[in-house]
């Protein structure tokens, strides 16, 4: 800790912040992609087809039942190996992209359940009114239910984004470069892990704090129409 200010110099802080930028990008892309996957999985889950329901259930249970680090590592090593077995050619993908895909697939399973819960939270009378006005199932979902469900979804999507910011640190395990990785590089350079990790911790904390504040603002705005 004696070299605290030497390690946390302007240049090094910028270095950490660059890593944080990548972490944030990973988290946001994963949230958006996860939202897409989650919406599809949720609509499978709520569809009348038994097969689609089963596909969604199996996906959600497998993802929730295995560690994220395992899923990430599987994506990094097992998928390219399988690809090589089948096509006899190499698959080269940036670990950052692989990381985003793996985290999105993971997040999608949780988001699917969040969306399902939010849809169920909308008053049943809204479905009945839509039926009596002859709106179709998808019109009802798109025009009536989802806009209202979104309000219930904001708080849980916020905690999902906060989780993703923190979980994005896991992709350093498959060789992607982000905030955690940059902190480790500083640690190696200065033979001191404590200070860079402390700096990274402060940055993670500030990012999640800002997200949480922004979301409460959005939430109160959405609730204004209740």
């Amino acid at each position: 800790m004696s070299r605290f200010f030497e390690i946390l110099s302007y240049d090094n802080i910028v270095f950490l912040l660059k890593g944080a930028g990548i972490s944030l990008i990973v988290a946001i892309f994963s949230l958006l992609l996860g939202l897409l996957i989650g919406t599809i999985a949720a609509s499978f889950r709520l569809s009348r087809s038994r097969l689609l329901q089963l596909i969604a259930k199996v996906y959600i249970e497998i993802i929730r039942g295995t560690p994220m680090l395992l899923q990430l590592t599987f994506m990094r090593f097992a998928v390219p190996a399988l690809y090589q077995q089948i096509t006899h050619s190499y698959l080269r993908v940036d670990p950052l992209i692989l990381g985003i895909i793996a985290i999105s697939v993971n997040s999608g399973a949780y988001v699917a359940e969040l969306i399902r819960g939010a849809i169920n939270a909308v008053d049943k009378g809204q479905w009945e009114a839509s039926t009596s006005l002859n709106l179709s199932y998808y019109q009802t979902l798109r025009l009536i239910i989802l806009p209202q469900a979104f309000k219930y979804l904001v708080p849980s999507l916020t905690s999902e984004l906060i989780m993703l910011v923190k979980d994005s640190s896991l992709i350093s395990a498959i060789g992607a470069v982000e905030l955690m990785h940059h902190a480790k590089i500083l640690g190696v350079n200065y033979y001191d892990y404590t200070t860079p990790l402390l700096g990274a911790g402060v940055i993670y904390f500030l990012i999640t704090l800002i997200i949480s504040k922004l979301s409460s603002k959005l939430e109160s705005r959405l609730l204004a129409n209740d």
Binding site: D123, G125, Q126, E128, A129, S132, L133, N134, L135, Q139, L143, I144, P147, Q148, N225, D226
Partner: peptide, 29 residues
């Protein structure tokens, strides 16, 4: 389409204005 239904609990669409509530079904359906 030839029947109107009025509920005990109104079941207006809270995220739409009065005019939007009224126009939704005739324009969409």
């Amino acid at each position: 389409n030839q029947m109107g239904f009025v509920f005990q609990n109104f079941n207006l669409f809270p995220h739409l204005s009065v005019l939007e509530n009224l126009m939704l079904a005739p324009t969409q359906v």
